[in-house]
Design a binder for these strands. Structure first.
Lengths: 223, 223
DNA sequence: GCGAGTTTAAAACAGTCGTTTAAATTGTAA
DNA sequence: TTACAATTTAAACGACTGTTTTAAACTCGC
């Protein structure tokens, strides 16, 4: 059990290689041997530095999400007008979700690992949600709540917040179909600006409509 | 090469077992041995009846998608008012995406296999898109186009159609996070009616806003 | 009942999997 | 240099993978 490691080089190379392989194939299909080969390390290196494959995966996910979350564009303060906050949130969300492999490899890998975790959740997802995603959920809920007004119910805020984030996540989680349906169109990550503006306008329309006509309390009929 | 098969029983049992195992673990993680065991068949049965594992998977996907697509609630004709068509489309889409494992096992399996194909697309996805998904894409595009009016550009129609389907797919593709963020809330498939109504209202708001203020032609400034 | 064709069965094929072992190597401090 | 711990290495572990082989069991028309 190495208490203090003298040489962390191969450990870092293992993490980098693991990011590539896990992001491409997912936890179970990825093989320790391929990761070690790509890192130029021995097969036993994973078990020496991380104990086992699962711990390498969890360590990687934590590091990757921490890095990308910290590098995110700062959100607007709660004192800013809610429209501007919504616009900034959508933009930052798109930047994070649709980063290209070329100039933001780390973010793109985090997005892909997130996608794979959605399809087949593992124990790591719980921590990711608690440490990172929950903050975003609360942020967008606050923004949407400000736009809907104080009369909006908590359920309605959640529904509208879901509608906003859904429109962004769609371009990550349905990328395979988008590319298949319109193979000649430029890929989504080349038109984040256009997409962000559209989602902002579309969401503002939905929010103002629902703010104007709040639904009756459930189970009761309006007077 | 069996030209005419006398006994298709085990073939059918293999397909049923494959649906369960593939839907749970995905193509690569699922094992032929587990499928055969669950079907009460010999290990060689898959290769005898389907040639190999990949062909079993493709056959299953085609059959499953054909079945669920045919059992779908009929869509409204193009002559119906576009608002009603949008409402019916969203409802039918939700019914298909959020079917419970208990009373609509086939649909739920198809939805899960779809989710797994999104995360790690295989050759089968191309056929699924061509034979089934493309029709839905054209249907929702026609509905959205009618609601936006004739002045809407093709790109704007695609963006708005994406915003609509994204709100539905969200509850399939982010189910893991939804359950994690609100573990006590009733699962989405128990409140399809509420969700469908919300997505309809939210989308109508977004569509009317974008219909009222069409964006300028790209690259040019409005007069 | 017979033989042809279809379906199942057990066993083995050559690989890959994650992990472990034990020896060899490296780097550092006394 | 010696001594010791940290790291890397090659080799092997048993278990599992998809697929194939070979033979046995079945089902059918005759």
């Amino acid at each position: 059990m190495p208490v203090k490691a003298h040489n962390q080089e191969t450990r870092a190379r293992l993490l980098a290689a693991a990011a590539e392989v896990f992001a491409e194939k997912g936890f179970e299909v990825a093989s320790v041997r391929e990761i070690c080969a790509k890192a130029g390390a021995n097969v036993a290196a994973v078990n020496y530095h991380f104990g086992d494959k699962r711990n390498l995966y969890n360590t990687l996910l934590n590091q990757l999400f921490a890095d990308t979350w910290n590098k995110r564009a700062p959100l607007l303060p709660a004192s800013a007008p809610p429209e501007a906050r919504l616009r900034a949130f959508i933009q930052a969300f798109f930047d994070e979700v649709l980063s290209s492999d070329y100039d933001e490899r780390g973010r793109a890998q985090a997005a892909r690992l997130y996608l794979l975790e959605m399809a087949r959740p593992s124990e790591a997802l719980t921590l990711i949600v608690r440490d990172y995603i929950r903050r975003d959920a609360e942020e967008i809920a606050a923004i949407v709540g400000a736009l809907l007004g104080p009369s909006a119910s908590e359920a309605q805020v959640t529904l509208c917040a879901s509608s906003v984030v859904a429109q962004v996540l769609y371009y990550l989680q349905s990328a395979a179909i988008i590319a298949c349906l319109a193979p000649d169109a430029p890929p989504p990550h080349r038109r984040v600006a256009q997409l962000a503006e559209h989602v902002y306008q579309f969401s503002l329309g939905g929010l103002t409509r629902l703010a104007a006509a709040p639904p009756p309390a459930k189970g009761e009929t309006p007077c």
